[in-house]
Amino acid sequence: MTIVTSLTLISHSLGAFLPIDSVFSTQGIMVMLLAAYALAMWMFLTSAPKVHTVMVSDLEVARQFYEGLLQLNVADIPLHYYYNYEQTLGTAGVDPLYMSATSSATTTTNFRGSEGLWYQLKKNTQLHIISGASYGTKNRQRHVCFDHDCLEEILMRVQSRRLKYKIRRNKPLNFLVKDIEERVIEMAEVKN
């Protein structure tokens, strides 16, 4: 008897907070669907890889450097880049010094997530290589990045491969490295 009374009290107290008839109403179903959608979006966005973008002078030289010397694995394009995520980054804040002198207005407006090269830098971190950087002094290849952590990861990879390099500056990070054909590549961090 006391067990039945206890269950009745529990069901009445739960019913006060969560009435069954309102859960299965149109409004209740909509709230549950919105909550499920929010959970799915949160899971999608938290599982998406972090992407670092590097602008380079020449995509073919960059391919030889990242695949050949640094031995980075080619990565699949993350799903969120199919939905024009990178267009929200914009290029309005890019200093003209870092853009190619021969680039036209179409170079800055044609950024699509699928263009360029994609590499797996770490487990949940990818490297997106795009063209658009100007050549450096003495016609050096130039790789420009806005993210200090990205360039540190590349520098650690250069050091682990025992490649010739020279750190020119720590803040913002700037270093030189030689590729297979003894071309000097300048890796430069751009301060926002």
Score class of each variant (00 low, 15 high):
M1P: 14
I3N: 01
T5C: 03
S6Q: 06
S6I: 00
L7N: 15
L7P: 04
T8G: 14
H12V: 02
H12S: 09
F17D: 04
P19C: 06
P19S: 15
D21S: 13
S22G: 00
G28W: 09
I29V: 14
M30E: 14
V31P: 01
L33A: 03
A36C: 05
Y37S: 09
A38P: 07
A38Q: 08
A40F: 12
M41R: 10
M41C: 03
M43C: 02
F44G: 02
F44V: 03
T46K: 15
S47R: 11
A48T: 08
P49S: 08
K50H: 10
V51W: 11
T53E: 12
V54P: 11
V54W: 08
V56I: 02
V56K: 08
E60Q: 15
V61F: 06
Q64K: 15
Y66V: 01
Y66T: 01
Y66H: 12
Y66R: 10
E67H: 11
N73V: 01
V74H: 09
V74N: 07
A75P: 08
A75C: 10
D76R: 11
D76M: 09
I77D: 05
I77W: 08
L79I: 08
Y81W: 15
Y81M: 14
Y83M: 04
N84S: 03
N84L: 10
N84H: 08
Y85Q: 13
E86P: 02
Q87M: 06
G90L: 10
G90I: 05
A92G: 11
G93L: 13
V94T: 15
D95T: 07
P96V: 03
M99E: 10
M99T: 13
M99K: 15
S100G: 06
A101T: 13
A101K: 15
A101N: 07
T102M: 01
T102C: 01
T108E: 03
N110R: 13
F111K: 12
F111G: 04
F111R: 14
R112P: 00
G113K: 08
G113Q: 10
G116C: 04
G116I: 01
W118E: 05
Y119D: 05
L121I: 02
L121M: 13
K123C: 05
N124R: 12
N124V: 05
T125P: 09
H128C: 02
I130T: 13
S131K: 13
A133C: 09
A133N: 11
S134D: 15
Y135P: 00
K138M: 03
N139S: 11
Q141T: 02
V144D: 01
V144L: 09
D147I: 07
H148V: 10
H148D: 06
C150Q: 07
C150S: 13
C150Y: 07
E153I: 11
E153W: 10
I154S: 02
I154W: 04
I154P: 06
L155W: 10
R162M: 01
L163G: 05
Y165C: 04
K166Q: 10
I167Y: 02
R169S: 06
R169L: 00
F175W: 12
L176F: 08
L176V: 03
L176C: 01
V177W: 12
I180M: 07
E182Y: 05
R183M: 07
R183G: 02
E186N: 12
M187S: 05
M187C: 14
A188M: 05
E189W: 06
E189S: 03
V190K: 14
V190D: 08
V190A: 12
N192H: 05
